[in-house]
Simulated assay, not measured.
Amino acid sequence: MVTPIDEFGTQVCVASGVATAKAERFQLLVAALLSSQTQDPITYAAMQRLHQLGEGGGGLTIEAVLATKEERLDELLQPVGFHRRKAQQLKRVASILRSRHHDDVPTGLDELLALPGIGPKIARVILLLAWGKVDGIVVDTHVHRLAQRLGWAGATMDPESTRRELEDWIPRELWGKLSLAVVGFGQAVCTARNPSCTSCPLAAECPSAFKIQPATRMKMKKPPARLEKEQQRGKSNSE
């Protein structure tokens, strides 16, 4: 089963033939930063545009970002969620990596969290993909939802609480693999609105199986009689 994260996830957003390991790690950081509040295909498309940065299309590097105006970055990022803010953050991150980290991605969670736009989830994604380091289970909206439905964690609105509960009983050696696998499963099978319980291999053990109400379209409210008459009168006058 191929899922959106397999085709468009952060791990496949690196340019083919990237010149250096540092450049590869930076591209992974950028893709992870852009992925927040954005669907994977949109992030992937934005990354392809960013790969054309630099003199002669030299690629997405710290140097290229620093040399590009923020307004141009904003244009390239659209329609990424909060693209204007992320263009600002991208410029600041590039500057910090140059001045404090020798043009490289930090190897520690606290150092990553100190970067603009990088929260706990994104920081753990970067550590996992850029450095192969597992500093906890990555809990995004899909992992959080599945943990609730499967009864893996108690009812909470806080992904960090879910992460701590999962880490209490899931063996550490599975944390990295579980993060990527559950995200894909949530995208393709246990979706937010219309989960495919009939084809789910976990349905027999899932306490939420066949209990999620299918999504329905909201019906438009009929306008008040007075407004409806005014609309009809305006239409008649225009004819």
Rank of each mutant, 00 (worst) to 15 (best):
K222D: 12
Q88P: 02
M218R: 15
G136V: 05
I212S: 02
E167V: 09
G117F: 07
E24A: 15
S236Q: 15
A204N: 10
G184N: 08
V189I: 11
P79L: 08
A203P: 07
E205V: 14
N194V: 07
A114V: 07
D6H: 08
K222H: 13
V183G: 05
A87D: 04
W169Q: 07
T10V: 11
T38F: 01
G81W: 09
L178S: 12
K133A: 10
S36F: 07
V14W: 06
A87S: 04
F185G: 05
L202T: 00
A94T: 05
A19P: 12
Q148V: 02
A23R: 13
G234H: 12
L128H: 09
I122A: 06
A147P: 01
R149K: 00
R226S: 09
Q48H: 14
E228D: 13
K235L: 14
W169E: 11
G154A: 07
T107H: 14
L150I: 00
Q89L: 00
L29D: 11
K235W: 10
D40G: 01
K235V: 09
A147D: 01
R193C: 11
K229Y: 11
H144T: 02
M47D: 12
E63D: 14
Q89R: 12
R217F: 14
P116A: 08
D40W: 06
T191F: 10
Q231A: 14
I212H: 01
S36E: 10
Q187K: 10
G56P: 06
A130E: 09
A147E: 03
D40I: 03
A209V: 03
G154C: 03
G117L: 04
E205S: 14
K91Q: 12
D168S: 15
A114C: 05
